[in-house]
Computed example of a mutant assay.
Amino acid sequence: MEQQPSILIIGHGSEHSPGPLVSACGHADRLMASGRFAEARVAFLMAGEDPRDQLEAMRARTIHVIPLFMCDGYYTRTVIPKTLGLQGPRTSRDGSLLIYRTPIGMHPGMAEILRLRTLETCHAAGWEPLGTRLMVIGHGSPKSSASAEITRRHAGEIRRRSEFLSIECAFIDEAPRIEDWLRDLPTEGPPVALAGFFAADGLHSSLDIPGWIEAWENRTGSRPGARVRYTGAVGADKRVTALIAESIATEIALQLP
């Protein structure tokens, strides 16, 4: 019987928030609990276990390297491959096959998880989805269109179902910026659900966005949570673990004779 594969989850990491560690370790723990993997380790490009050290300690014949990133940008195309010496999607090294997977945020199933989290937020608030504005928030970048493109793609998939009053996108680091959008949000109007398209509840997700919401509530005199609610970072959702396992199972199935 062939040895079970192992998994190395690599995130960006943060020196200011435990969110990235919580998100990555949550996925690793659930993947190990499934009984389908020999090992699941986590590593970070910043403030955490070094990816090179973690990979060096792994001995499985097949190791799936999972970028816990929302888009295929500089870190996933350049930094991680260079750090680990990857030579494309499949790299043979020291008796192991390293399979470098697509960033988890690119998985088509992420749109469904964003949608479900928004519906759950509406239900908890007592809002009718058809009367609720949905704003999908991505990181964005003035240097690359990758983040904005995948954010808009997932928003477009949700829009096809016509479940919400409107579906828009805003970003942290490019226009339209969510900070500016909230500053200009009128006092009166339909409720707004902000869906965080982030890998973890890091600095932006756990501090910046809640802080901007609070500033709007203070300025307008709105009761907290009465009109604007934030879903948190989608990348930490336990349903994302299933997407990771599903993508690996598909890869294995394609290799069967």
Rank of each mutant, 00 (worst) to 15 (best):
T220G: 06
C25A: 10
A146I: 07
R160G: 04
Q255L: 11
W212G: 13
D173F: 09
E157H: 12
G19N: 15
A233N: 03
V42Y: 03
T132F: 12
F37N: 05
E15F: 03
G85D: 11
S144M: 12
R133N: 13
L21V: 09
C25T: 05
A226T: 12
H123Y: 10
L254F: 03
A236I: 01
L86Y: 03
H139D: 15
I213Y: 06
E120V: 00
H123I: 09
P191R: 03
E163P: 05
V42M: 02
A233T: 00
H16Y: 01
G105Y: 08
T132R: 07
P5A: 05
V136K: 07
G156T: 15
Q4N: 03
W181E: 15
A28T: 11
E163Y: 05
C169D: 15
A193W: 08
P67R: 01
A215L: 05
G73C: 10
F198Y: 02
S205N: 10
A249D: 13
G85V: 08
L86V: 09
I7F: 00
L134V: 10
A24I: 00
I209K: 12
T91Y: 02
L243W: 03
L68D: 13
P191G: 06
L114A: 07
L207R: 04
D94Y: 00
L185K: 00
S6V: 02
R93N: 09
G196K: 01
K82C: 08
